[in-house]
Design a binder for these strands. Sequence first.
DNA 1: ATTATGACTTCAC
DNA 2: CGTGAAGCCATAA
Length: 112
Amino acid sequence: MENSRTNFFKDVYEVVKLIPKGRVTSYGAVAEYLGSKGSARMVGWAMHGAAKIGGVPAHRVVNSKGLLTGKIHFGGNRMEQLLKAEGIKVVDDKILDFDSVFWNPVQELGFD
DNA sequence: ATTATGACTTCAC
DNA sequence: CGTGAAGCCATAA
């Protein structure tokens, strides 16, 4: 039933949904896992659709710097609030210990 | 088919 | 450290 959402979007949703609690990932990491490393922007675009669909923890996806760039679309501190609830420390729209909470799908899920 | 846009990434100044 | 520009890929119009 891949009508509105293409395989790309669907993959993004699934990967994001697989993100463990208290962990975050970056657009580039997801894009890389999907095979389209250069499509980091697409991941963000997919999140845009995911946000309206719901069921996808888009708040667990940040940019490569660990900055909550997407919070702008979440509206206010919604994203930051959610991350803090997960046990992630966020200050000035940035994730602390980003390297520790980072969750790489390629590394965790594996390539094969 | 072409143009415009986007929640990105990275290098350069 | 802040800003700018280019590269990248997929969607929408």
